[in-house]
């Protein structure tokens, strides 16, 4: 019996497609991909906006914590006073020490 030769069929298929099918299928796929790109960019923007908002809130919280806590206010006020003023303020008590009568 003669052996079957694959070349007699080659890559031919018994199937056909409607005219213009591939052009239409490509157009549909490209349109879907464009939506996907827009969607992808929108997600990036939304994530960036959320991150920026979160960062701003955290920044504001840290700023409030640093500048409004009582200890920090005391240190801040102290740093605003010059050394001369401090010296003047402390030196007022020099005489008090001298006048203490220890028996």
């Amino acid at each position: 019996m003669k052996e079957f030769d694959f070349n007699s069929v080659g890559k031919r298929l018994p199937y056909s497609v409607p005219e213009g099918f591939f052009a239409q299928a490509k157009a549909q796929a490209k349109s879907a991909s464009a939506k996907r790109v827009v969607g992808h960019n929108t997600i990036i923007y939304k994530v960036a906006l959320a991150a920026a908002t979160l960062l701003a809130i955290c920044g504001a919280a840290v700023w409030l914590e640093v500048y409004t806590s009582p200890e920090n206010q005391y240190e801040r006020l102290l740093s605003e006073v010059s050394s001369d003023m401090l010296w003047e303020y402390v030196s007022e008590y020099d005489t008090d020490i001298e006048n203490i009568d220890i028996e």
Binding site: K26, K30, S33, A34, R36, V37, H40, N41
Partner: peptide, 24 residues
């Protein structure tokens, strides 16, 4: 990111027909 849609278009052009026949 700025040329992503171009890349996807090329992908569609290249593989629509082979994928269709594979699926068919």
């Amino acid at each position: 990111p700025e040329r992503r849609s171009e890349g996807l278009s090329l992908l569609v052009e290249a593989y629509t027909e082979p994928l269709y026949w594979h699926l068919r």
